[in-house]
Amino acid sequence: MFSNLFHPLHGSSWYIAILGCFALAGILIAILQSLPHALRRPLIRIVTFLGGLYYAVEYFWPTHSMPIPGSPKHMGNFLTPFISPAANMLSVIAGWTIGLGTINLCQIHGKRLLHAKEGKLNSLVFFIAMIAMFTLAVLKQAHPNLINKNLYMLLFEGLYQALDSTMFALVAFFLVSASYRAFRVRTGEATLLMVIAMVVMLGQIALGQQLTIHLPDHGFWHNFRVEIIRDWILTKASSASVRAIAFGIGIGNLAVALRVWLGLERGAFFDS
């Protein structure tokens, strides 16, 4: 019965099914809205728990051989066949969320334009740029003629690439200024940080490596080559610290995920 229900439809029956979906959604919203306030919070918790249940159970449930076309060694359990549809559905839903940010930005810039506030010209530029780029990105695929492709490339190469890379390249200037003004060896720890940073910097540039290039390729003195010292710092000493910090972060992440899943998390989302 279930598989019969999910059968592709065409023509008028398709329209009826779509309208039916929306009508059901309307009824669902009306039912949800009529729920007493005290029930809303537990309902959110239940839905959150159910959201995580599928993936968690699918992961922990013992697996057995489950050959699929082209992959005879495939392993899985009774929930595995649903992974692909579920993942597809969730990534489409993630795609829909893009509108949330867009609406937010449009609200801010729309208000500025409508009330003719300071920076209204910039807000107008924002709207024009957004609409132009969106239209061309869609047109390029829907009608891939030369003009659409070239206009798209003009905006992509001429504006987007230049603006994006320059925005991040600016950081290099601020780093230089900070290196000169703020990088002071006031304490032992700061001195250690500075010395290591300098060795790593020297070890990762061609001219720095030339300083010790004449040291032998093997043997004791080889270890004093600047790129070897840098490699030792990165692979032996600093990697241990990074790993220790990462373990902490990983356990923290897992604890937060568990709290969210089980509805134990406090704060704006679950409480108010």
Binding site: G95, I98, G101, F126, I128, M130, M133, V138, L159, D164
Partner: peptide
């Protein structure tokens, strides 16, 4: 602001065309 608009439009366009 030009950057903001262009990147938003680009992201929206690609979410539609590719996903």
């Amino acid at each position: 602001h030009l950057f903001l608009g262009i990147s938003m439009g680009y992201l929206m366009g690609n979410v539609w065309t590719d996903t």
